[in-house]
Nucleic acid binder design. Structure first.
Lengths: 168, 168
DNA sequence: ATGATCTCGGACAGTTTCTATCCGAGTTCT
DNA sequence: AGAACTCGGATAGAAACTGTCCGAGATCAT
């Protein structure tokens, strides 16, 4: 009788973590930062991180510049970019719970005309996701940077700025 | 310039929907209901639904009985089973966001002794997931059944009970 | 008591999604 | 104008989800 529990879970794409850290890092530099440099700082595969940065670019969160002095930079001040925007840019806009209209199938199927409002189960799941989104909507990249700095007693962000400026 | 958006999203297992509907259905019957019968009612693949019902059984939400008059039944009153329990049973206990400790990697890696508290980004994501869980924790299977019944003006649950009792 | 029928339970493939990588298009500096 | 460096999308590999099958166990009829 082994307590074999499946630890699958509502998996959030791994790139979300890298994207959030990248945005916090970018908030500490006014000059464009190449993807390879972000990958080196975060210890992640360069090519794969680049793919996620492209998603941020498409979402209008960062702006990319090509060429020798190119790289990525935030399009707006860090206090005007919410964590929710970043998560949605990487993970997609589609809700986690997708109702397949079970009530319209089987021997007790309801007619479509009586299913204009989402079913109660879908409503409950949507409300939960809205609570999740609200929590992330009110957290900005600037907030995250400030908290990380506080955790390190004000040394972390300065160290990042210093590292970004050196060894270009 | 096609607005090609990736609609991947924090995908929640499809079986969550079937499990929630199954629990609502089981709340309308005091006798065990076979998996094949639930699948017929919901219009889902019988064998695959059975797989998810096994997960509910392992989580202690339903009790299975073998044999000719066997099937699944709820282990507790429907007002003592939260939607969160059902979702967790199917989708797993692991949080959606998994921190890989980026701060401990790269040239600016922090020593492990200064990383006993989760990093600020992980804390923000955990808080959002806790808000999501709270919303689902306060919704019971009985609530869902009552709301579905209200949506159909009090006919849906009676129809389910009637269908379960017939054509055995 | 025995056999047959019906049930659940875990082990077995197919398909989609995520992970990871490479090379071409465009831009800047020499 | 040439060279070096950057982003961008198209291309393989791995993991997870989706779907299915057959065996183990229990109940009812004989």
């Amino acid at each position: 009788m082994s307590e074999l529990s499946t630890l699958a879970a509502m998996k959030l794409s791994n790139g979300v973590e890298w994207a959030l850290h990248s945005c916090v890092t970018l908030s500490q530099s006014r000059e464009p930062v190449p993807a390879a440099r972000l990958a080196e700082l975060h210890g992640t595969p360069p090519a794969y991180l680049a793919k996620h940065l492209q998603a941020l670019s498409r979402a209008g969160i960062v702006h990319s510049t090509a060429g020798q002095v190119g790289g990525y930079e935030l399009t707006r001040p860090a206090d005007q970019i919410s964590a929710l925007e970043v998560v949605r840019a990487i993970d997609g806009e589609e809700p986690a719970y997708r109702c397949t209209e079970i009530r319209q199938r089987g021997p007790l199927a309801l007619p479509a005309e009586r299913c204009q409002r989402p079913c109660a189960i879908a409503r409950a799941m949507a409300a939960a996701e809205e609570a999740w989104a609200d929590a992330l909507r009110h957290v900005t990249i600037a907030d995250l940077a400030a908290r990380i700095d506080a955790d390190s007693e004000g040394t972390a962000m300065a160290a990042v700025s210093r590292w970004l400026a050196t060894a270009r």
